[in-house]
């Protein structure tokens, strides 16, 4: 088992121990991440409860279409990431490379769409400090009572910090994926040494989970105008 020697670090007894440690280490890190995002989710929840109308009004102006497409893009990247782990474990090098590259591509698509969305927000004067028009918020149609521009701004700040932090995590993840591609091309990711793919996969899926919650919290809060072709049944409480 000469390959094992290169794979096994000096301070571990065996591969099983090393694998378990790597996965567990990543899980602990993810616990940390839960609390990082948890802290801002808590702040968001408090202001969401405090200023419901303002938050719903701001949410209505966000681009639900891009947000939803991005969700699907990100979920697809999670699928390809999961397939990469599978490919490594069964030793299919070509499939591994394809899946990793697809994951990177989907991640880049997500970030690209995000940039487009940010730019649109900018053009629509939805960026506090940079481009924001307080006056337009005092008269909005379809909202029960006019809202406070400052509180709308608060919602938008949360939107940028939360999506920005998420995007930063995506960028880190892309860097890790590129490293995985290099390793894979050198043939270093094998059924014996598959942990790097598994561990980075855990991270990638976690970033996906964060987005799963960002979608309803930021984009889908409040009732939206349905596109005309979509049948919406009336609901009465």
């Amino acid at each position: 088992m000469s390959t094992n020697h290169a794979v096994l670090a000096h301070h571990f007894e065996n591969l099983e121990q090393q694998r378990e440690t790597a996965a567990f280490g990543m899980w602990i890190f993810l616990a940390t991440e839960v609390l990082i995002f948890g802290a801002i989710f808590t702040c968001y929840a408090i202001y969401r409860l405090r200023y419901p109308l303002d938050f719903e009004a701001a949410s209505a102006r966000l681009n639900v279409l891009i947000g939803s497409i991005n969700t699907i893009v990100l979920l697809s990247s999670s699928l390809t990431m999961a397939l990469s782990v599978h490919a490594t474990r069964v030793g299919r090098q070509q499939m591994l490379l394809t899946c990793l590259l697809l994951t990177i591509l989907l991640g880049a698509t997500f970030l690209g769409l995000k940039v487009v969305e940010y730019y649109q927000d900018y053009k629509e004067k939805l960026v506090p400090v940079l481009a924001f028009d307080p006056d337009e918020w005092t008269q909005i149609e379809g909202v029960e009572a006019p809202v406070q521009p400052q509180r709308v701004q608060l919602m938008l700040v949360f939107y940028y910090i939360m999506t920005g932090l998420h995007a930063a995590h995506m960028i880190v993840g892309m860097g890790l994926l590129i490293w995985l591609v290099i390793e894979a091309r050198r043939g270093l990711l094998t059924p014996v040494r598959y942990m790097p793919v598994e561990v980075i996969g855990l991270y990638w899926h976690f970033v996906d989970i964060v987005w799963i919650f960002l979608l309803p919290l930021l984009y889908l809060t409040g009732t939206h105008q349905a596109p005309p072709w979509l049948p919406i049944p009336p609901i009465h409480f």
């Binding site: 616990a31 991440e33 609390l35 990082i36 802290a39 702040c43 506090p128």
Partner: peptide
């Protein structure tokens, strides 16, 4: 592991507020 990230977030929020004058 579980407390430090919350401080990190609190510092980010104060930093954002301080740097750009946004009210959180």
């Amino acid at each position: 592991v579980l407390a430090t990230p919350v401080l990190a977030m609190a510092l980010i929020l104060v930093g954002v507020e301080r740097a750009w004058g946004i009210g959180i």
